[in-house]
Design a binder for these strands. Sequence first.
DNA 1: GTGTCAATTGACACGATGTCAAATAGTGTT
DNA 2: AACACTATTTGACATCGTGTCAATTGACAC
Lengths: 195, 195
Amino acid sequence: MSRDVDDTRTRILNAAWQLLEQGAGKGVRMADVAALAGVSRQAVYLHFPSRAELLIETTRHIDAMHDVAGRLAASRAATGGLARLEAFIDTWSGYIPEVHGVCSALLAMRDTDAAAAAAWHDRMAAVREGCAAAVAALSADGMLRTDIDGDAATDILWTLLSVRNWEHLRQDCGWPQDRYVAAMKDLARRALTTD
Amino acid sequence: MSRDVDDTRTRILNAAWQLLEQGAGKGVRMADVAALAGVSRQAVYLHFPSRAELLIETTRHIDAMHDVAGRLAASRAATGGLARLEAFIDTWSGYIPEVHGVCSALLAMRDTDAAAAAAWHDRMAAVREGCAAAVAALSADGMLRTDIDGDAATDILWTLLSVRNWEHLRQDCGWPQDRYVAAMKDLARRALTTD
DNA sequence: GTGTCAATTGACACGATGTCAAATAGTGTT
DNA sequence: AACACTATTTGACATCGTGTCAATTGACAC
C-alpha cells in the first residue's frame, strides 16, 4: 500500500481537509495547505496538478476515511418505505457536516473550473441515486403520492436535501443539527407521502 | 435628476446587468462590463469603487427597473392566508429569474468580500420579511400548523424559496418555470398548513 | 560512489483587481 | 478667445493567487 498514514500526499490531504472544515471552505490557498502539511508549496503541485484536483481528491479521501459506502449500505437495510426514507436522511444529514467545507470550495470553483464542475456533478448524481432508491422504497410500500411520478418525487427530495439547504438552515437560520434532521424528515414525509 | 438613461453610470449598470444575466453571473470581469458599456475599464472605477459595489448597485438598479416594491405591495393585497401565500410565491418566483445572474455573482463574492456579504444578507433579510408576512397571514386564518411556531415556519418557507433551490430545480433538474412555481406552492402548502 | 526519487528553492508568467498620474476632450463662463 | 471645470482616456504599475520551470539538496538502495 503506497498510501501510508505519514505519506506526504496523505499529510497534504489531511491539511486540506482540516483547513476546509475549519474555514468552511473559504479562501483556502495552496500555500496554506502546504504550510499546514509542513511541506513546500511546490510539493503540493508534485502530488496534485491543480487546486481543483486537490479538492476532488480531498473529497475522495474524506469518503474513504468515513466509509460512506458502508453507511449507505446500512441505510438500505431498513425495512419499510418510511423507515428507509428516514434512514437515508439520517445517513446523508450526518455526512454533510463532515464534507461541508470541501463541498463549499468545490461549489465555488464550479463556475471557473470544468473538472470541479464534473466532480460536483458526479457527487450529486450519487446523492440523487440515494434519493431515487428511497422514493422507490416508498413507492413499493404504496406510500408515495400518486399525483406525481417517481422522477418528480426524486427531484424534490434531492432538492430538499441539498447541501445549500443544510447551509441555509444550519448557518443562516442558526438551527442545531438535530432540528435540521427532524425538519427534513418531516418535510420529506409531507412532500412525498400520501395522507 | 443626474441619472439620465444615457448616463455613463447607467450604461455601465445596464452592461453589467446584461452580462450577468446572459452568463448567469459566471466570470464577468470589470473589463467585460467596460467594453460592453463602450467605456474604458478605468471609467468603471470612476463610478464604482470596486467590483462588489458595482454588483450591489446593479441589484439596486434592477430593483428600480422592475418596481419590486410595487409588485410586493400587490401580493399583499390578496385576501385569505393561502391566497396570500401563493401570491407571494408568484411574485418572488417571477422575480428570481430577473436577478439570478447578479445573485449568483454576489453569492460567489460573499466569501471574499464583506460588502458583498452584507448586501446579500440585507437582500435575504427582506425576503424573509415577505415570508414572515405570508406566514402571519396563514396564522391569522388559522391555517398554520400548530406544532411549529411562526419563526420556524418562516425559516422553512424562506429555505424553500431560496435562490439556490430555484437554481437547482430549474437548472440541475431542468424543470420549466411554471412547474417550479406549482411545486413550490404545493410544497409550501404541505409544509406549513394544517390538514 | 552512483543513480534515483522526493522535496526544496527561487524565479517567473499569467489573469484579475485595484491604484495612480498625466494627457485629452467637452462644456460652459466671462 | 482664453479660462476653468469635469468626465474620460491612456498606460503604467502594485498585488495576490495559480501554475510552471529549472537547478539544487538529501536520503536511501545497489
